[in-house]
Computed example of a mutant assay.
Amino acid sequence: MVMKRSVLALSLVCALSSASSVAAITTPEIIQSSLCFDCIDYNIIGACLWMTCTPIGCSTATSIKVKHRLPDMVAMSYPETGHGPWAATAWMSPKNPLAQGGGNSHGRSPQLLDHASVSFQNVDIIGHPAEGSFFKLLSTFGYVLEGPAKPFMPYFLSSLDVVGWRFNIPDIFNSASWNPLKNKVGTFGNIYPRGGFSVQPHPYKSAALAAFKAAHITTRENMSRVYQPLVAKSKPGYWPPSPVDIDNKETAWQPLYPKKVMKAAVWPDIDDRLQMGDPYANRISDNGQYVWAVWRTYRGCERKGQTLIAHFGQ
């Protein structure tokens, strides 16, 4: 069930009466972090051949084919409902009668699991605010592509997706939810069921897994969840990324909080299965809040004719 305008309006009304917490990150900080050349990963990868026909004949023209990332969204994972880490959007996801608690205060999950490592994470997926400054920077490379994301658009708010995020419905009926060997994000955990509870004792991995689940939902259409799809359609000369998934290398995550990093990496970016220590130890947040910019890879070429008749380059 795609998020309706009435649901959004209701969240706005509820938010006006909700007290917000001290923000962990601000809009200027997020915009500044998008000026990241490593994250953009701009490359000329090939060419496109176009044909234009008129009553007097046909002509052809070529254009370069490029590949680069766009910062489609900001993903936030945080424990306490109503206390989002981004100041400008915290009001979008307030507590409500059906989504009041968060963090580790829940002794029992919807699956009736009593375990010390069961935790709950709220997740918000918001359109990245850096459209203007980012494209100004990106245009210095040459031809650039546009994505479908709208700045500050709430694509997924877990406090509104109560049935899906807190009770795992309908994902609990998906066979992937009962197969521990399938759909696993490294040592973070399983994608399904795509809810806020996880049996993961490591705080960073638990938060990252929750963010991955929300992005997994948001980049697909026709999910039986309360959300707004963030999906671009392919067309001649324009090839957007496929949905977020464990075997999709087109999505990279840039840490913004608790520590900003000026590079983006495909998850899992560390194989810690045979390491003695904890390579994720320096990523743990003191307040349980985490923020990432989610960069996705787009491919395309400038349109220079009526019909795309050939292209090459991956």
Rank of each mutant, 00 (worst) to 15 (best):
G164R: 04
P193V: 13
S93V: 00
S21C: 12
S234K: 10
P240N: 05
A252F: 00
D286C: 05
I284M: 07
I169S: 05
D278W: 03
W267M: 15
H128N: 15
H115S: 13
S109E: 08
P240C: 11
A116P: 02
A75W: 00
C36D: 14
M1P: 01
P240I: 11
H68R: 01
L308C: 10
W253L: 14
K233F: 01
Q289E: 15
P85A: 03
H83Y: 02
K263H: 11
E131Q: 13
I45K: 02
N282A: 03
G195H: 05
W165T: 04
G305W: 01
S133H: 13
P94T: 09
V261I: 14
F141G: 02
P94D: 11
M3S: 09
C36E: 06
S117K: 09
L137P: 00
P255I: 04
A61P: 08
S175F: 12
L8V: 15
F188M: 12
D286L: 14
L230P: 06
I270C: 04
V226G: 01
L209I: 10
A24I: 04
V261P: 05
V291E: 04
W50Y: 05
Y290A: 11
T307A: 13
P193G: 11
C58I: 03
M51G: 04
K263W: 13
W292S: 05
P110N: 10
C58Q: 06
T140I: 06
A281P: 00
L98D: 13
S224K: 08
S206T: 04
V144I: 14
S34V: 03
L49S: 08
D272V: 08
L209C: 04
G127V: 07
V74S: 02
S139D: 10
L145Q: 07
I217Y: 15
T52P: 02
A47W: 07
W267P: 13
Y238P: 02
Q100D: 06
R296A: 08
P170L: 09
W295T: 12
T218Q: 03
N104I: 03
N168S: 15
K259L: 13
H128Y: 06
T62A: 09
L274R: 08
S175R: 15
S159G: 07
G186I: 15
F134D: 02
D286G: 14
V7Q: 14
P279C: 03
S139A: 08
F173S: 12
T52K: 04
Q306S: 15
F152T: 02
Y204V: 03
S33T: 05
Q306G: 11
K263R: 14
L181I: 10
R296G: 06
M76G: 02
D114S: 08
D114W: 08
W239G: 00
R108M: 12
N222F: 13
G46T: 12
D124P: 00
A149E: 12
V118R: 09
P180G: 01
L112G: 13
L274G: 02
W86C: 08
W295S: 09
D245Y: 12
F167N: 11
Q32C: 07
P203I: 01
Y192S: 10
A47G: 00
F152V: 06
G305Q: 03
G57V: 10
G107S: 08
Q275V: 02
A149T: 14
Q289T: 12
D286V: 10
Y257P: 00
G189A: 07
G189W: 10
K150D: 02
L256C: 13
Q111V: 03
V118Q: 09
L181K: 14
E29T: 14
A75T: 01
F197A: 04
